[in-house]
Structures are given as C-alpha cells and as structure tokens.
Amino acid sequence: MFHLPAMTWTLTAVLLAGTTYHLWQALRSGHVTDRVNNTLHALMNTLMAAMLWNLAPTTLLAQIGLLAGAALWFIIQAVARPEYKLLCAGTQGRIKCAYHALTMTGAALMITTMTHPASGAPMQMPMDHASHHAITTTPHTPATTGTATTAPALGPTPGLLLTLLFATAALIFLILLLRNRTTTTNHHGSKRPSTRTEHALETLSATTMALMFATTA
C-alpha cells in the first residue's frame, strides 16, 4: 500500500495499539454497550492493520459485512430516542456515535477499494517495468492485461474528500486533546479512561485514516 516500509510499520503499530486499548476497555467496562462499542473498535483496527499487509483476502466480504453492521449499530445509537439511556446520551454523545459510524463506513470502503478479492494485491502496487513495456509496445494487448490483479481505485475526488474529512477530524481531536482534562466516570456511571487518552487515540486513528485514504486520491 505504501512504498515506504517504515510508514506501513508505523501505521500497523498505531492500529494494533488501538486494538489493545479498546480490548482492555471492553474487558474492564461495567456496561454492555461500552463493551460492544470497544470490541467493534478493536475489530476495526485489527482489520485495517490486516489490510495494510494484504492478510485474509478470502474473508473480504465478511470483513465488509462486519464493518457495515458496526456502522449501522453506531447510527442506531446516534438516532435513538433520549429515553434509551443505554445508548448515546446527549448531543455530544450522539455526535460521537455518528462519527464512529463514519469511521466504520470509511474502514469498510477502504477495504472494498484497496484489497483484491482474489489475490489480495494492494491497489497502489506499482506495475513492474516488463509489464509496462509489454503493454506500451504491443498494440493488440487488452487494456486490462496490466491491471488483472488490481482492485479499482476509489477515485481522486472521493479519496481527496475523505482524506480532508479525516484530516479535519484529526485536527479537531488534537485541539480537544490540548484543551480537555481527565474524567473518571461516564453517563452510565462506570469508570472510563481519561478524556485526554480518548482524544489522543482518536487523533491517531483519524490521522491514520487520512493517510490511508490519501493513497487513493
């Protein structure tokens, strides 16, 4: 996906750190909704890390289905009636759930456009010189010959828009990180990590999404 191995390793480390964090929060949470939400975030981070290395391409449809279901779950929380206090509460909580629905949708779209369903070849893998020469010098070669193992790109406009969207989200979370202080309880009355920790994780996650979508722009 990335031509620099250091970038791939760095993003993998960030995603796996997010997986570990969310799994830990799921285990220590005293509320079932928080457990489900954190488990879904851990799953998303794991699938994104696997995509960086083109792992498990045969489970592509299952991955997309899981992420689409997770997006729907967060949408339900975001639009639930106020009396359902087990779900997102207050304007801030609803906005947060709506954003998480967007991240799940973005992850599903990323996997759809950047993983080949048959071979798992990355979309951005450059064509070797021999293949390029054969295509440019053989007039009767079909145009699809050089891209037989390549998934269709997301496109410059959608890729750019999603890159800007997640880059903006990363900037917002960074500002919140610098302004907010720690908290110890949530609206369910259970223990929570500090707000600063959550904002730091969201900043890294949004930055990762922006960088990955930038490769499709």
Score class of each variant (00 low, 15 high):
Phe2Trp: 10
Pro5Trp: 07
Pro5Asp: 10
Ala13Arg: 13
Leu15Ile: 06
Leu15His: 05
Gly18Phe: 00
Thr20Pro: 05
Tyr21Ile: 15
His22Asp: 06
Trp24Ala: 03
Trp24Asn: 04
Ser29Tyr: 07
Gly30Tyr: 10
Arg35Pro: 04
Leu40Ala: 01
Pro57Thr: 07
Thr58Phe: 09
Thr59Tyr: 07
Gln63Glu: 09
Gly69Thr: 10
Trp73Gln: 02
Trp73Pro: 02
Ile75Asp: 07
Ile76Arg: 11
Arg81Ser: 13
Glu83Asn: 14
Leu87Trp: 12
Gln92Trp: 01
Ala101Phe: 10
Met104Ala: 08
Met104Val: 06
Thr105Ile: 00
Leu109Ala: 08
Ile111Met: 06
Ala121Tyr: 06
Pro122Cys: 08
His132Glu: 12
His132Lys: 10
His133Phe: 11
Ile135Tyr: 06
Thr137Asp: 14
His140Tyr: 11
Thr144Pro: 00
Thr144Gly: 02
Thr147Pro: 02
Ala151Ile: 09
Ala153Val: 02
Ala153Ser: 05
Thr157Arg: 14
Pro158Trp: 04
Leu161Glu: 05
Leu164Gly: 03
Leu165Thr: 07
Ala169Ser: 03
Leu177Met: 05
Asn180Arg: 15
Arg181Ile: 01
Thr183Pro: 00
Thr183Val: 15
His187Glu: 08
Gly189Ile: 08
Ser194Ile: 03
Glu198Gln: 07
Ala206His: 14
Met212Gly: 04
Phe213His: 02
Phe213Trp: 01
Ala214Asn: 01
Ala217Tyr: 01
